[in-house]
Amino acid sequence: MNGMNPGVLDILFDPLFAEPFATGLIFAVLLPLLGCYLRLRDEWLAALAFAQTAAAGSLLAMLFGLPLALGGLAAAGLAAGLKHVFEGAARGAQGAAYAMLLLLGWGVSVLLVANLPLAERMGHALFDGQLYFTDRAHLAAAGAFAALAAFALRGLSRRLLLAHFFPDFYRARGLSERRAHFAFDLLIAGALALATMSVGVMGAFAMIFVPPLIAFAWAKSWRRSVLLAVGCGVLAYLAAFALALVLDQPFGPLLGLLLVAAGVGSALLRRLAGHD
């Protein structure tokens, strides 16, 4: 650190960025954690659809003078409800439903951005990520949601794992796991809706998709995969946060590119080590 330009340190430790940093850090832990269960269920496309739908909901909320977070959460929650309708459908039909949601969210967002000057600025912020403009309200919402998600996941984790490895475990006992799946979908939708407003649509998607991808390849147990995914997410976040500030670049794309580099590096390393 001795050789570092003092100006860079001043930027990194500027109290102005303390709240945005803490907000992003919460999502850097939460999204990879949830992403492990999403990857277990092979539903990563649903995550992208939720994030895109949340962005459209935020823009619509702005159009009607409502809080952006409310619009994002409502739209993502609605998307989770629609996904629930397709829960029993064949895997191909589920994938098609997620793709339709994704296209719906994208279409609404782009039309709003193209036709409303105010939406244009907000649209760019939502897609690029506006982490450095998040405030105490964002931090409070992220913290409260993360606490709720951690509490809910304690109860949901075993149910989700059982449903994957023993699909008839609950049915054989006369119980249904559909409510657990819906609760998990709402968690994913809520996390992505809130994360989209700070780290952006693709930044949030990268954070929920790439760290579990890396962790699943290396970990020897579920517990270790969750820890590794969270570790990858936090490291990529710290690097992206610092680089974006120092290089004066948008945070979301930098985070996405760093995670892609980590994912490709991980795959190459596995190939070189003869694992794949």
């Binding site: 277990l40 794992l161 490895f165 023993f166 699909p167 475990f169 699943f216 147990s221 579920w222």
Partner: peptide
Amino acid sequence: PPEIGGVPFNAGELIALT
């Protein structure tokens, strides 16, 4: 058994799960 390829779950965890 269901498709398990690629999921980092070990034998001890599977037994404990039920």
